[in-house]
Amino acid sequence: MISPLYIRSARAISAQESFASNDLSKEIRSITGNRFVYIEPNYQQYFTIMQLRRMSRLTRIGLVTAIECLKDAGISQPEAILTGTGKGSLHDTEKFMHAIREFQEGTLNPSPFIQSTYNSLNGLIGLHHQVNSYNTTYVHSGFSLEHAMLDAALLFGDNTIGNALIGAFEEMTDEHYIIKEKLGFWKNGAVSGEGCFFFYAEKDKNGSALAIEDIKLWFEPEENQIRQGLEELLSSHQIDWNDIDVFISGRNNDKRYDHYYNLVADKLPSSTHHIHFKHLSGEFDTAAGFGIWAAARMAEMKRIFPSLLLKEGSRDNIKHILFYNQYYGKQHVVYLMKTTA
């Protein structure tokens, strides 16, 4: 059990037009090639050209997403900033590696080095909002966002803080796409993606529409461990499979991993709605953020986004949402969420 995270606002920059309208009402964009690429917002209203020049592709969207997320909640200074990213600013990492080679370790521009640091976005958000606070970054692949969430819940639990800005950010580059291709990431149906997601959460309910009630993490689990872990999760919250109104799964079209999601789907009644999201975002370390964003927005707007429906159920009233994502069989994460309306 964790101290619940009451989500007051959620924002997403993704390969869909999810940012300005903060929903999925716009026409769905289909993929070009084998990569979902995120849609960058108009930066003019946020930064001067000089500021923009100093920032990289990923820190730009990261900061803009954080700004709008806090604005939606009417908060200027959160009490903590926690993020997760699998790879951080890959463009900067690569740029600095190329510069080292090209200039043979001579005089180099330090900017890419600084921005390649995984916590540089956190620092920028802190600077932009003048937030003196708890500030940390988790960099553990498919667990990255979840540890940011869990740590925030722990900080709520011991009364260190009463609210937090929590987020995830990821980008793909041409070079890293090739590396992941060689590692076999795309050969069985999964499509590459990227995106940035921020959530403002409070310890108390205060008009939030969705609460993250629990988070479970398993590394390379056996199917039995997942089954047992889910049963324990549900019973510890005094609910059972029939209480799940919406099941959100991280299916990524890679058939090698469908059995994990089927294991959950098979337990659920036919009235439960089944939702997926990676067909719109692509697959990446922190893709779960897109699914959590969708859950938060659907709870707020009290409707299911039709483009996410994998199998329509019959429940009108949405109370309990079970979210299950796994990243290439290694990191498995489960969120139990509850609408508060």
Binding site: G88, T117, Y118, N119, N122, N135, T136, T137, Y138, V139, H140, F143, H147, L217, F219, E220
Partner: peptide
């Protein structure tokens, strides 16, 4: 490292410089 030392039940990595 977690696999080698039997610490796979719960793990993460932090990077704050």
């Amino acid at each position: 490292l977690a696999r080698r030392f039997g610490l796979t039940d719960f793990m993460t990595t932090i990077s704050t410089a």
